[in-house]
Each structure stands twice: as C-alpha cells, then as structure tokens.
C-alpha cells in the first residue's frame, strides 16, 4: 500500500506573533516555523496504518521555509520510508490553494492508495488542503478523522462529529483523509536517529510549478482589539434580578 502524507510548516504559536508592516499578514521572518500539529497526527496515523497493513509511507511538503528537511527527517525517524520536497520560489505563508495544487501535482505521480494529511493548520484555519488535493486528484475525501483501518482495498475511517457523535465510513481506495487525531499520540523521534537520518537520507526533489494556483488574500490582519468591557454585578439573587430587570427596561426591551 502506498501511503502519502502531505505536510506543511506553520509558525510556532508559543512565539509572540508580530504583524507585518502592511498589516496583511504575520511578520514571517521573525517567526520560528514548526510542523503543523495535525500533520504530526497524520504522520503517526500513516505509520500505524503501515505497521498494521504493510506498505510504504512517503512524506511530502512544499518547502516554504528552507527548513522543511528538518521536518522530513523527523518523519523518517518516526517510521516514514521516503521523503520528498517540492522546490521553487514559495515564500513562508504560501496560501493553501497554491500548496494544494503543488501537492496534488506531485502526489499524482506517486499513485497513492491513501493520502493522509492534517485536517487543518493553525495558520490559516481554512482546512482546505485536504479537500482540494482530493478534488484535483478526483478522489473521495473524509475529514475530521480520528482513526483509519485499511482492509481489502477499502479504508474504514472514523469521523468525529460535534457533540461526541462518531461516524464510521467505508471508502474504496484510493482516497484522501483529513486527520484530526491519530489513534495513538504521535511518537517521539529521538534526536540521535533524526541526526543519523539527516546525514544519510535522500530527499527527492520535485520542482514546483510557480504559477500553480491562487488562493484567498487577506485584506487586514490585526491583534484582537478590546471592545468595551464587562461590568460585574454583585449581590444576592434578588438584587441582581432587579438590576437585570432595570437594565432590560432601560434598553427599552420591556414595556411598562
């Protein structure tokens, strides 16, 4: 079975985020980039699926930071078999439409049985990469998945709904899955292994088409602005009830 995991790097959220000069995005150069947490789960789920059903795991990403190799080496240390980097002039924060197109083009040539990617990422929160890859490749997509089991050319996927409801889907392969959480916490990659791999591993390079796509543009990005403040009422229930009634009257919501 051929499992492909598209990944991307996003700003480290424990950093203090700064807005760039134009006020249209983050000041990417001041930020440290780390692997998207949901992609970490996608890698774990892929390695678990491989361990259960055999196959190979290929991890692939668009190199927007010049530091993607670190993430790829870590994925290899966790049990992925191959790694590929899409190269080209793609700056930090490249939008999800462009990345999805680039990834889809590259993944097509890998003829995957299963594509597992993080259901969303904290940078744009649009959750589009998975569905768009599926659309470009003409494959079925299920998102917010918390577990994948592969059997006889089919995948059983568990999807989490709001309110704790679970759905179980049987989907014919190939398909694309947006992973919410792997069914085990992502494993730790010991640094000695990562360093060993960094010395020996070969990462395939795929040249990306620079005019691959266009996504949405951000008109304005800003830090939360305080808008008014809450007033706390103290006192017994009677007292507070009276104050509420008075306020409702005052606002003209109650007659008499």
């Amino acid at each position: 079975m051929n499992i492909v995991v598209p990944i991307k790097q996003i700003p480290n959220l424990t950093d203090e985020l700064e807005i760039n000069g134009d006020g249209t995005g983050l000041d990417h150069d001041a930020l440290q980039y780390v692997l998207n947490e949901f992609d970490e789960h996608a890698i774990e789920e892929a390695v678990l699926a491989k361990e259960a059903a055999g196959g190979t795991v290929t991890v692939i990403g668009v190199d927007t930071t010049g530091e993607l190799d670190g993430a790829l080496h870590t994925a290899l240390a966790k049990g992925a078999d191959k790694a590929a980097r899409i190269t080209g002039d793609f700056p930090r924060g490249t939008d999800s439409h462009t990345q999805a197109k680039l990834l889809a083009n590259a993944i097509r040539s890998l003829s995957p049985d299963l594509v597992l990617t993080g259901v969303q990422a904290a940078d744009d929160r649009d959750g589009q990469i998975g569905p768009m890859i599926a659309a470009h490749l003409g494959l079925p997509y299920v998102g917010v998945v918390t577990g994948v089991a592969v059997k006889d050319g089919k995948a059983i996927v568990h999807k989490e709904y709001a309110g704790g409801l679970m759905g179980e889907f049987e989907v014919s392969l190939p398909m694309v899955v947006g992973v919410q959480a792997a069914h085990q916490p992502p494993r730790y990659a010991p640094v000695s292994k990562v360093r060993q791999i960094a010395k020996t591993a070969k990462i395939d390079e795929i040249a990306g088409d620079e005019a691959a796509g266009a996504g949405s543009t951000v008109r304005r990005m800003f830090k939360p602005e305080a808008a008014g403040h809450a007033e706390m009422w103290e006192g017994g229930p009677e007292e507070v009830a009276e104050k509420i009634a008075a306020l409702i009257k005052e606002k003209g919501l109650l007659k008499g």
Binding site: K78, R187, Y188, A189, P190, S192, K193
Partner: peptide
C-alpha cells in the same frame, strides 16, 4: 527513548 517507547506525555512534550 531510542526505541520510541511511549513516553510520559510531559517528558515527550518537553523534549520536543
């Protein structure tokens, strides 16, 4: 640690 055994979550996240 080398074998990727399941670590205490606090230890793992601190190491990461």
């Amino acid at each position: 640690v080398n074998d990727g055994a399941e670590l205490d979550s606090g230890v793992q996240s601190t190491l990461e």
